[in-house]
């Protein structure tokens, strides 16, 4: 066993970090935040560049134009995206690569409707993945000539996250067609394939949350070292130290859960990783805000952007209650006294 990222994986992470620092530096983020038209928060040329770099096609076989890599590598890239608050329906687009033409290359933007609720970036999306929760299957709606909102009868709302425009959709539309190649009649990708995509969506969302949690931890620690009150850095006060220490503990627990789930890809591991990563992202952003004092409450500071994005991501791709319930059920489903399927924490 060597749980640590390999040499190649570390290189991949570093490459993604370099790409995002160059192509989506803080100034770009702030431009998106203050964009007059929320739809312009998604930069199509950056999207294409992500496509070129293999962000979407990473896991496709090499013969299909991908890199033949696995879920762990995707998780590393999504963690970096979360760190940088990269806007856009990254998860839906990544999942649709190989299923829908143009997606892998970054030409096509894919968003998702997981049932009645909020849909992100609907007005700029080319395709909407439609999840039919009752039947557990996924279909697609083609959104040609920017009619997304009308197709779905969605109402634009002023999104709490300034870089993620939202539409509120009250009912799942008719007319979603089967995902190409899914080979399932009557409306989409079903059964095991759909379930697998949904698990992956939850995990990649967790990876973004993990990245955000790591970033707000760094911001908090850096502020604690630099901001002085009472003649010393505020990081010298135990109250501040303990907040930072808890942030670190949250981040590390989330990190190992997310990484492990990317290896096992089991329902239960992903549910647990998701809960811990959601909590780390939201709580760390809150603590980071608190440690910034009055500055943390301003529009100018970035910390609110992490908090708002974390709220939004938490509501996507598998509700908290679902994850909690499946983790609880797993306890009873397990024969004997072992603490969990595939889980022997003290072995």
């Amino acid at each position: 066993m060597d749980f640590r990222p390999s040499h190649d994986q570390r290189a991949l992470i570093a490459g993604m970090r370099t790409l995002l620092s160059a192509r989506f530096p803080r100034e770009k983020l702030r431009e998106a935040v203050d964009a007059e038209v929320p739809e312009t928060t998604l930069d199509r040329s950056l999207w294409r560049e992500l496509g070129t770099c293999g962000f979407f096609s990473l896991r496709l076989a090499e013969k299909d134009g991908g890199a033949g890599l696995g879920l762990p590598e995707s998780v590393f890239l999504f963690e970096e995206a979360g760190r940088h608050l990269l806007p856009g329906p990254l998860v839906a687009t990544h999942l649709a690569a190989g299923l829908i033409p143009g997606v892998a290359e970054g030409e096509t933007v894919v968003t998702a409707l997981e049932g009645p609720g909020m849909v992100e970036h609907l007005a700029i999306a080319d395709v909407v993945l439609v999840l039919d929760g009752d039947r557990g299957c996924l279909g697609v709606l083609e959104v040609t000539d920017g009619h997304g909102p009308s197709v779905l009868a969605g109402r634009p709302v002023r999104s709490v996250d300034p870089t993620t425009p939202l539409h509120h959709v009250v009912s799942t539309p008719e007319g979603a067609r089967a995902l190409p190649g899914a080979g399932v009649g009557g409306g989409g990708l079903a059964g095991d394939d759909a379930a697998r995509l949904l698990r992956e969506a939850a995990l990649l969302t967790a990876a973004q949350q993990l990245g955000s949690a790591g970033r707000t931890l760094d911001m908090a620690v850096s502020h604690a070292k630099n901001r002085r009150q009472f003649g010393r850095p505020i990081g010298a006060f135990q109250a501040v130290q303990h907040l930072c220490a808890q942030m670190l503990a949250r981040t590390e627990l989330a990190r190992v859960s997310v990484y492990a789930a990317s290896l096992t890809a089991t329902e239960i591991d992903i549910a647990g990783a998701r809960l811990l990563a959601d909590e780390a992202a939201v709580r760390n952003a809150r603590d980071c805000l608190q440690l910034h004092g009055g500055m943390g409450f301003t529009w100018e500071a970035d910390v609110h952007l992490h908090l708002k994005r974390a709220w939004l991501r938490r509501a996507q791709w598998r509700p908290t209650e679902d994850a909690e319930e499946s983790l609880a059920r797993a306890l009873l489903a397990t024969p004997g006294e072992s603490p969990g399927e595939n889980r022997e924490p003290f072995e």
Partner: peptide, 20 residues
């Protein structure tokens, strides 16, 4: 639920200002 992401909802504003 999802409406908590609507910044124009009174309780969303309340949530944001409660942070201060």
């Amino acid at each position: 639920g999802p409406l908590s992401l609507d910044a124009d909802h009174e309780w969303t504003t309340g949530r944001l200002t409660s942070l201060a």
